[in-house]
């Protein structure tokens, strides 16, 4: 159930970033959040890089959820 809750909340937050519902987040999407969150474009870019595990420039819901799980204290397997 915890996993469900995590997925649900992560999806909700993911949608805040992915306003066009593309199914992924780009750095451009992140930087647009600068108007809504108290973070600088540089900080948003750093956040993006730390979440984008494979470094392909696209942040998927899976990567986002994993990062969010870590934030909430759900250790990842590896």
């Amino acid at each position: 159930e915890m996993q469900d809750m995590l997925t649900q909340k992560a999806t909700e937050l993911f949608m805040l970033c992915d306003k066009e519902e593309k199914g992924f987040i780009t750095k451009r999407d992140m930087q647009r959040l600068g108007g809504e969150l108290p973070l600088t474009p540089d900080q948003l870019e750093a956040v993006f890089d730390s979440l984008d595990d494979d470094g392909n420039g696209y942040l998927t819901l899976e990567e986002f959820t994993e990062g969010f799980g870590g934030f909430l204290g759900f250790g990842s397997e590896d």
Binding site: E12, L44, D49
Partner: peptide, 29 residues
């Protein structure tokens, strides 16, 4: 519109991002 409803989530998002920033220092190439 749903903007107001999302404000709580934005707070969570900001906390989440801040925690990532405190964990990983800014890039230093």
């Amino acid at each position: 519109d749903s903007k107001a409803a999302a404000s709580g989530s934005e707070g969570v998002l900001a906390n989440f991002f801040n925690s990532l920033l405190s964990k990983k220092p800014a890039t230093s190439p």
